[in-house]
Nucleic acid binder design. Sequence first.
DNA 1: CACTTATATAAGGGTTCACTGATATAGTTG
DNA 2: CAACTATATCAGTGAACCCTTATATAAGTG
Lengths: 120, 120
Amino acid sequence: MHAFDVLGDPVRRRILELLAGGEMTSGALCEVIGEEFGISQPGVSQHLKVLRENGFATVRPEGTRRLYAVDAGPLQDIDAWLDRFRRFWTPHLDALATELARGKRARRLRDADETPRSTP
Amino acid sequence: MHAFDVLGDPVRRRILELLAGGEMTSGALCEVIGEEFGISQPGVSQHLKVLRENGFATVRPEGTRRLYAVDAGPLQDIDAWLDRFRRFWTPHLDALATELARGKRARRLRDADETPRSTP
DNA sequence: CACTTATATAAGGGTTCACTGATATAGTTG
DNA sequence: CAACTATATCAGTGAACCCTTATATAAGTG
């Protein structure tokens, strides 16, 4: 399943949004999602499986619970795919700022201690 | 159809990649896509319709041809949605650089992501 | 106008997906 | 071990999606 397909489902997007705030147990997710979308525990569990199997989430057992957390790998892939379109909405940011934003070379920020002259 | 669903299809992603290079006619797209994916002209046309109807592409008639172009609006929405996960792969960029990169206006644009309450 | 080229729509079929209810696994506790 | 809690899996069903072939619209050309 492609990363975009995984994110095509609103339940899975919401789960990731929740996990963005930190680890959560399957049960806690079931509660919120069940409330918001009106779907059953197996329904949520199946979505968690999709997130797991596609690298969007990791799981860590703790006693009888299972703690889920975001794995940002596939999200980063999507971010990278979007690169080729960024020029459509960030007309001409100077290269340094773009580089910074992408995070390709965070180190350079320290070296060049300047305050990047903004041209927004 | 949600933006992520639109991008879930590899043919539509490829069409957008091609359009990222500049306007193209339906015919030219049919040729490349037909070649690469082995699908028919109506197949491609239907994908173009999806892209149009969901705001990913604009069309402009020129004689008997139709010129397609990228409309980056929905892509920007996706980029904005990814914001909440960026900290996972851009450890700690200072706020200024991030703000610069995102484009200050992008922030104001939209933050709302509908999380429907379904009625069973 | 008849003909051709460029593109879109229509109708139908096969496949995939997301749900539900029932059940299985696994850890915890009496 | 038995009972309970937390979570995952199974089997089945209805809907959505993407493709195909056939056909429609529309503009240019003799």
